[in-house]
């Protein structure tokens, strides 16, 4: 009977008022400080569970109207798009959100909004890469990069979204040639961005395609790593590939008004600055100041017409393409 005790304890603890429940693939340490701040300001409390996006969405589908969750936070546009197709999200009509979040960083039907942006760009070793040698993502596929490139696995959604944008902008045939070129030039494929950057630091390769905040974290720990950041495709339509971390209101939420209020708050200045700086990301609200370290990397151009829903739609094709060229 001893095992019943925790259940009884739980029964009593859950019934407090004004609690929002969040399913999130954003890691606890990257979301908790924000939630704590909101609780401090408004008294609204949070329940949250972290997991991978696919599992969370599957869980929401299985729970249907019985779900305890109010909000879904994910870390990739593709996942947000997929959630928007699964009939689990509800559109939010909010002037505040519309004002704070640019159109390319929200769902066309207001089913989700981005709250931070992540740039997937190139980092390089200035000792081995000559000035002017770097130009575009496509250029990394040319033979001069043979044996000089580090990549993260194709299983990571960040690469899937990047390839999806390549497919959208360049067309499938050209995109396939580019990705095949990367694979041919790669010395090692890593399970995470941090290892890929360490590959560049240690001289295993000269350049890698990574999200900036991984670079930022390493830089914060050791400012002398000697690796630099480069913004590719600044003179063409593509620009730097941007991904988002965002959220949507769940159709079966029992606290819709409170949830909407929270998201509106999250799009405002104070929350945005904290949300982005926790992980050295870029705020989705363009009027908010950047973290000093992030600011020091300079500005860049990206394709404002490319809505991340498209990356989601093309994600499946991107994975197929990567399988076809043996990108592990």
């Amino acid at each position: 009977m001893k095992f019943l005790i925790p259940f009884l304890v739980l029964f009593s603890s859950v019934a407090s008022a004004k609690t929002l429940t969040i399913y999130t693939s954003r890691k606890e340490h990257l979301i908790k400080p924000i939630l704590d701040l909101y609780t401090k300001e408004t008294g609204v409390k949070f329940n949250y569970t972290t997991n991978k996006d696919g599992a969370l969405i599957q869980r929401l589908k299985a729970e249907g109207s019985s779900t305890p969750a109010d909000l879904l936070f994910t870390v990739d546009g593709g996942n947000l798009w997929y959630a928007s197709t699964q009939n689990i999200l509800e559109p939010i009509n909010s002037q505040i959100l519309d004002k704070n979040i640019p159109a390319s960083f929200k769902d066309p039907k207001n089913l989700w909004f981005a709250f931070s942006l992540r740039a997937r760009t190139i980092v390089y070793n200035p000792k081995t890469v000559k000035k002017g040698e770097l130009s575009t993502y496509e250029d990394l596929a040319t033979s001069k990069w043979k044996g000089r490139l580090c990549l993260r696995t194709s299983k990571k959604v960040y690469n899937q979204s990047l390839v999806a944008e390549l497919i959208d902008t360049l067309g499938r045939k050209k995109a396939k040639k580019v990705v095949a070129g990367w694979v041919a030039n790669t010395v090692d494929i890593f399970s995470n961005d941090t290892s890929a950057i360490k590959g560049v630091i240690s001289g295993q390769c000269d350049a890698a395609i990574v999200n900036t905040y991984y670079y930022g974290r390493l830089l914060k720990k050791d400012p002398s790593i000697g690796v630099k950041i480069f913004w590719p495709n600044q003179n063409d339509k593509l620009g730097v590939h941007i991904n988002v971390s965002g959220a949507g209101l769940l159709k079966y939420s029992k606290n819709k008004k409170e949830s909407k209020k929270f998201l509106e708050w999250l799009s405002g200045g104070k929350a945005q600055a904290l949300f982005a700086s926790l992980n050295l990301e870029y705020p989705a609200n363009p009027s908010v100041d950047l973290d000093p370290l992030v600011k020091s990397w300079g500005t860049f151009k990206y394709n404002k017409e490319f809505n991340l829903s498209k990356a989601g739609m093309l994600q499946k094709d991107a994975i197929k393409l990567m399988h076809e060229v043996q990108y592990k």
Binding site: K155, I319, K328
Partner: peptide, 22 residues
């Protein structure tokens, strides 16, 4: 997945969460 070595389990995961085909 730490070794980035593809087996049935990684393929299950990829087709589920990547290609959205449960």
């Amino acid at each position: 997945s730490v070794f980035n070595f593809d087996t049935f389990t990684t393929a299950i995961y990829e087709s589920w969460t990547g290609m959205f085909s449960f």
